[in-house]
Amino acid sequence: MGFKLLSKLLVYLTASIMAIASPLAFSVDSSGEYPTVSEIPVGEVRLYQIADGVWSHIATQSFDGAVYPSNGLIVRDGDELLLIDTAWGAKNTAALLAEIEKQIGLPVTRAVSTHFHDDRVGGVDVLRAAGVATYASPSTRRLAEVEGNEIPTHSLEGLSSSGDAVRFGPVELFYPGAAHSTDNLIVYVPSASVLYGGCAIYELSRTSAGNVADADLAEWPTSIERIQQHYPEAQFVIPGHGLPGGLDLLKHTTNVVKAHTNRSVVE
């Protein structure tokens, strides 16, 4: 069995187990497998329904001669939608809004960016022009300005110390501490036991640490421990890039980060 097929099978099995364990909360999309990078042309966006009122959005972007996937989250909030992270750029984010209108038909009224990198804030200006209120932590807003990236308009308070959590509509926002970046936030959907790890969490097929220019490698494993301790009931975990899975993604990420750190020390 090929690795790609095995990865998709694991996603399907995880979703099936969740649907059985929580039949009222989960209505997993039966329309197909989780979209992969090879299936999404740059400039297009796919939506994948995880649970009743919960979707991931998947886009792709060219970077350094390669094409990478990027995940975000959409959560229903009454007759409105909360968006977590842009679709990595203005063109993708405009396509995301169009796809949401086509498939869901509810307005996106608020959006949260989970850290300051372009795959999370690139497209904020498109959201703002569409009347979406954009939010991020003060740290993310400051770092985005320093980096020359787009800056969300509103500040999220109460997320300055490791372990801080605040309720934001249908989700809980959690600051686990520094990891992929010093400002990275985690998003949890309690009604569906869905954990969105953003770039602080890796997919299972990833074996290298990737972009760690703004990471705190020493603190990252401790931050992941905080996530595990705060959300032990999480059933569906979405990484910032690639295929979702279960809580095993947290341990896998820790292993990859520690291996990278150990290699760096040896070198």
Rank of each mutant, 00 (worst) to 15 (best):
F3V: 09
L9I: 07
L9G: 09
L10E: 13
V11A: 09
V11M: 12
T14I: 04
S16E: 07
I17C: 03
A21E: 09
S22F: 05
A25M: 11
A25H: 14
V28Y: 03
S38Q: 15
E39K: 13
P41Y: 04
V42W: 13
E44D: 12
E44R: 10
V45C: 07
Q49T: 11
I50R: 11
A51I: 09
G53W: 09
S56Y: 12
H57P: 01
A59L: 13
A59E: 11
T60D: 14
S62R: 11
S62M: 14
F63I: 08
D64W: 12
D64T: 11
G65R: 09
G65F: 09
V67C: 13
V67F: 06
S70N: 06
S70M: 13
N71T: 13
D77R: 05
D79C: 12
E80D: 05
L82M: 12
L83I: 10
D85S: 02
A87T: 12
W88R: 00
G89M: 13
G89C: 07
K91E: 12
T93H: 01
T93E: 03
L97C: 05
E99C: 02
I100W: 01
E101W: 14
P107E: 13
T109N: 13
H115N: 00
F116A: 14
G123M: 01
G123R: 01
V124P: 01
V126G: 09
T134H: 15
A136L: 06
S137P: 04
E145L: 08
V146L: 09
H154T: 15
S155I: 15
S155K: 04
D164R: 07
A165W: 05
V166G: 05
G169L: 02
P170E: 08
V171E: 00
F174Q: 04
Y175E: 02
P176T: 02
G177L: 01
G177V: 00
H180Y: 02
D183P: 00
N184F: 00
L185F: 13
P190R: 06
P190I: 14
P190H: 00
V194Q: 01
G198H: 00
C199H: 00
C199Y: 02
A200W: 00
A200L: 05
I201L: 12
I201F: 15
I201C: 11
I201Y: 00
Y202E: 08
Y202P: 06
L204P: 11
G210V: 11
V212Y: 09
L217D: 15
L217A: 14
E219P: 05
W220Y: 15
P221C: 14
P221I: 11
Q229E: 08
Q235P: 13
V237A: 08
H241D: 01
G242E: 02
P244V: 12
G245M: 08
L247E: 09
L247N: 15
L247Q: 13
L247V: 07
K251H: 03
H252G: 09
H252Y: 03
V256P: 01
H260R: 06
T261W: 10
S264W: 04
